[in-house]
Structures are given as C-alpha cells and as structure tokens.
C-alpha cells in the first residue's frame, strides 16, 4: 500500500476533492462501463426488436443446451465471488491470496469460454449460421445469437487476459502464448475458433507492450478496477442468458 500513501500525500490540498469521491482510475473504469453497457444495451435492444417483429421465433434449445448454459451462468457467478474475495485479499495486502483468487476467477472465466465454444461448435454442426438456422424461417435467430454471445465471449476473453496480467504480470505472457498455440493446433482447421483463438495472440502482444513499457507492481486499486470490468461481464450475461437461451427453450 506504499504507493497509495504516497499519492494521498502528493495531492493533498492542491486540488478540489473529486466529485465522485474516489480515485481517477475507478472513475474512468465506471465511465467505460457506462458506455459499454450502452453498446451491449443497443445490441440487446436490436435483438428484442427483431424478436418482437418476428413472431415465429424458434425455440430449439433442449435440456442439454439449457443445462450447459446454466452451468456457464454458475461459472460466471462463482467467478464473481472469487473476484470480490481477491479484492478483499488485496485490501488486506495479502498478495498470495490475491493471486490465488484471481487464478480461480480466471479458471471459471476460461471454463465459461470453453463450454460456450463447445456450444457454438454443436450449433454450427447443426447448420446454424448467422444468416439462417434449421429450425425456422427467421434468420435473425442465428444472427442475434452469434452477435450477442460472440461479443460477450470476446469480453470474457479480454477479461481473463486482463486478470492474468494483474495476477501474474510478465509470467503470464508464456502461459498465454502456450494457450494460443494449443488452441490453434487443437481446433480443427474448419472451426471458427481456429481463427478466433488469435484473439489470445493479439492479447499477448498488447499485454507484452503494456508490461514492458510500464513494468510495475499492481496494487489493490488495480485489482479492484479489473474486478469492476469482470463483474460487468458477468452482469451482461445476466441479460443474455434469459433473453437468448431461456426465451428459446424447447419444452
């Protein structure tokens, strides 16, 4: 907490108190999340718009899909729990547990992504595409599904990389590269994830630039700010899950 002490000392008295009563980085993250929630909000409204104007919306998700999505939801919710525990540990100054809880969060996040990727693969094998699906004459079904969940999956992946950088710093780079290589070789060449996995490579490059340009020890505030992002990703799923999955349940 040395840096925090230093900052307070430095700014004492020279500036008006912050209008949001907290440190700038947290304000910045909240503002970003406000904007991002409008981005997701607009996508969800686009989905709902199509849903309302196409009464013959298909309901193909059987027990297996719903069970899978429910497990994914539980993963994300649990990752949020481990995330707040990481923040708590950071506030205590308990570095080993910060890292443990962050790794647990990343594990749940990664599990979510893997389960989701399997779901996508199944649906694609069932001939569902962005422009059509085998269950109905409403092409928006596939379009909205892939857009909403794809955008969310991208956010989760970025979140896992973000947490990895906070938890492990430069040690995370080789892990990320290995994951990328494994993902690239293990997914079949005709799978979307064969190319999608390059997100990890891009993430590794950006992380490397950040870590080498500004090598530093991440403090409790960085953990809290990364936590805000992570919880937001969880929050968005709370809307995608009922809209995309539960409203298309096959009974």
């Amino acid at each position: 907490m040395a840096t925090v002490q230093h900052a307070v000392h430095d700014t004492h008295g020279a500036f008006e108190p912050s209008l949001f009563g907290t440190y700038s980085k947290k304000v910045g993250m909240w503002l970003f999340l406000a904007s991002d929630s409008l981005t997701f909000g607009a996508l969800l409204f686009a989905y709902s718009y199509g849903r309302i104007s196409n009464p013959a919306w298909p309901t193909p998700f059987g027990k297996e899909s719903i069970a899978n999505a429910t497990i994914m939801t539980a993963c994300l919710l649990s990752s949020s729990l481990t995330m707040v525990l990481a923040v708590m540990a950071a506030n205590r100054g308990d570095k080993p547990w910060v890292r443990n809880w962050l790794l647990a969060t990343m594990f749940f996040g990664a599990a979510f992504t893997v389960l989701h990727a399997q779901e996508w693969t199944r649906l694609i094998a069932d001939k569902m595409t962005p422009s059509g699906n085998p269950w109905s004459a409403v092409p928006l079904f596939g379009g909205t599904f892939f857009t909403l969940t794809g955008m969310h999956m991208l956010h989760v992946t970025i979140g896992v990389i973000y947490l990895g950088v906070i938890a492990l710093r430069k040690k995370f780079l080789p892990v990320l590269l290995v994951l990328w290589a494994l993902g690239f070789f293990l997914t079949p060449a005709d799978s979307v994830f064969h190319y999608g996995i390059h997100v990890l490579l891009v993430g590794a490059v950006i992380s490397a630039i950040v870590l080498f340009l500004k090598p530093k020890d991440y403090d409790a505030n960085d953990v809290e700010v990364s936590g805000l992002y992570w919880h937001f990703v969880d929050l968005v799923w709370m809307f995608i899950f009922p809209l995309v999955y539960l409203m298309s349940t096959k009974v």
Partner: peptide
C-alpha cells in the same frame, strides 16, 4: 414471461453492481 425474466435479471444486475461492484459504498452523487 419475458417481463418476469427481465425483472429478475434487473434484480440480479442490481445485486452485482451494488455488492460485488461496491456501488453501494460509493458516494450518492456517483
């Protein structure tokens, strides 16, 4: 059902923002 699901989702989102994201502990203006 859509309405009920959305209300439940808003409750969940509220729990996440207020407790996990600590919005409850931020100052009222923010």
């Amino acid at each position: 059902m859509l309405e009920v699901l959305l209300v439940l989702s808003v409750v969940k989102a509220g729990l996440i923002t207020m407790y996990f994201m600590h919005l409850k502990s931020e100052i009222p203006r923010m």
